[in-house]
Amino acid sequence: MLRMYLWLYVLFLYAPIVIIGMFSFHSSPSLVFPFDGWSLRWYEQIFASRTFRESLWNSIIVATAASVVTTLLGATVALALIRIKGKMRDVIATICAAPIALPGLFLGIALVSGFAQVGMNRSLLTVTISHVLYALPFFVATLRSRIDYFDSSLEEAARDLGATTWQSFHLVTLPILRPSIVGAAILVFALSFDELIITVFVSGNESTLPMMIWSMMRRTVDPTINAASMVALGLSLIVITIAGAIFWLQRSAAISSRTSDLRVEANDQVDSTTEQRPQSVRPVQSFE
């Protein structure tokens, strides 16, 4: 029974999206069943629109910039959180998590006041900044479990064995954190690509894709909205699928290198030549 409930739950989540997806391929402008037939006319119409192409491009630029900046900021602060202990750590972690606990509306109006006060014009730059602020807590939260359970003795061990700070970073710390960082960066891309509540306040003349769909929705009921939203949805899903694929590939590569390493080790015991071990092997614990 609980199992059926779960599938009903999934159905509730997906049914509306599937319906919109179907109507985006509908050959007539009506939004009701029965279905007349399939066509791509709404997609042709929406891609013919210059505003749409521009906003799509703007969204991609903003999401890419936001995920790059968020990754740099989030990864450095994660490295700091690994090292810092005690009260300072709590302060930093709280500040990094705080924006998540506030409604987007509040962040939007605070940012727009701030930008106005320093005389910054609203543009894609302000949109990117606000997306970084919005996404950073999600980034840090995604890395949180890695940070909390990071065994700092690994780094210390590396240094004890003569590694420089840089070596211990890129041979020990980074391989452990990398899968989470990649995943979190892609999450940030998806969040930024979809963000509207803050963007409404901080965007200037160039609109992002959600902004454009929103203004279309306020004006009319138009079947091209179906197609536009499906493009937005499709892009997010492609990005998430890529993330999933990267995760899966890294995981299986790690597992296979682990097993081959064990085989090499077994051989080593026979002819006891420890130098032969492949250096490219990365630690596998990072994948649990």
Partner: peptide
């Protein structure tokens, strides 16, 4: 990750 607006729009359609 299915867009926020898509879902609002879907419910408006429904």
């Amino acid at each position: 990750f299915s867009s926020y607006l898509v879902r609002v729009y879907a419910w408006r359609t429904i």
